[in-house]
Design a protein around this nucleic acid. Sequence first.
DNA 1: TAAAGATATGGACCGTGGGTCCGTTTTGCA
DNA 2: TGCAAAACGGACCCACGGTCCATATCTTTA
Lengths: 204, 204
Amino acid sequence: MSERQSSRKDAIRNREAVLAAADALFSRRASPEDVTMADVAAAAGVGKGTLFRAFGDRAGLLRALYEARLEPIGRAVETGPPPLGPATPPRDRVRALLDALLCFKLDNGRLALALEGSAGGSSPYRADHYERWHGLLRAVLEQIPGLADSDFTAHALLAATRADLVEHLAGEGGIPRERLREQLASFVAKVLAPGPRPDGPVEE
Amino acid sequence: MSERQSSRKDAIRNREAVLAAADALFSRRASPEDVTMADVAAAAGVGKGTLFRAFGDRAGLLRALYEARLEPIGRAVETGPPPLGPATPPRDRVRALLDALLCFKLDNGRLALALEGSAGGSSPYRADHYERWHGLLRAVLEQIPGLADSDFTAHALLAATRADLVEHLAGEGGIPRERLREQLASFVAKVLAPGPRPDGPVEE
DNA sequence: TAAAGATATGGACCGTGGGTCCGTTTTGCA
DNA sequence: TGCAAAACGGACCCACGGTCCATATCTTTA
């Protein structure tokens, strides 16, 4: 996808190979923890040194993978049609945003889990992608009149779509995808509901 | 506290020593990850073998510590006066429950972080203490008329008090304790607010 | 109180996995 | 075609969780 203008082409080729191999491994293996860096390197037909030079460390690899997968959604959010794009009324957009995030975690469970779990000391809250989503969500929340604490609210809403929770509910919990989406939607609706006056502007 | 009827008294003494040492270490050191099992053993004046026999593994030690600290709150919830005890009206009790949890994480940040982080493959959602809190919260939510999806709602509310989030907000975020409590309280209030209608439409 | 059996001890030891190092190979440029 | 610069790869390092077992300590019983 992104070429990084690193002059040499073998570097680029290897980077892609690693990305592809890692992607495959993470979706095949049951748990993220039993995909080792050595595994990835071997599967990509590359030495560990190469792998680590390209991505820095385990977290770096995960991050790269994650962002690559998340990128389409990111674009849809920034410059896309409703309900994700910027032309959507705030309430609906928040709903759509969180729904998209939920679906993403449902589809890329293992990977998201690996990333959030690979915290390795530093919380997942310092990650760039988290900051981006939080910032966006907060901005949208701020456009809803009468809704205070948008910063905290954004955090709390995002927390409801954390990978391990989603995995737990969909996996062991056995809650079907659509049911989960409904539940999240209705939770979000409650949070966004206008306090005193009963009206539900759900126009589109 | 709990003696475990393991006949021999040196075992009991050592167990306590380890608990105390670990407790001290986790609150002193910056990050939970740089408290190794060897450290704990050394600080307790005990061999690693002893440590592992007493607690099984790292997660076991963390769990034991966590439960010991959480126990007073647990008792206050089960058989205590309002606002935590069972005599409290549901809405207020939910609020109090989450507030207590938040305060607990604020006070025992490092430890909670260590526990939730020590997932090591299995999500924190399988832990006994999580199930207990979730079960309790769900039960209380169910007493609130017109509030659907109490299972999911309980999860989502608990997610708002996750240790790493709390740590992030209070630590790097620099949000003062009382402000955080207010924000959580107002978030909870929103979720529990009696809607204009018993439940919102879930369009898709 | 002494001996025997049961139980606990502790630290040497092991396997694993992330991350580094550096001699060798590939690439790009002139 | 020659020569740096850049990248390669896998041997190597080390920290850490966890195990093992010869030894020490407790408890029971006679």
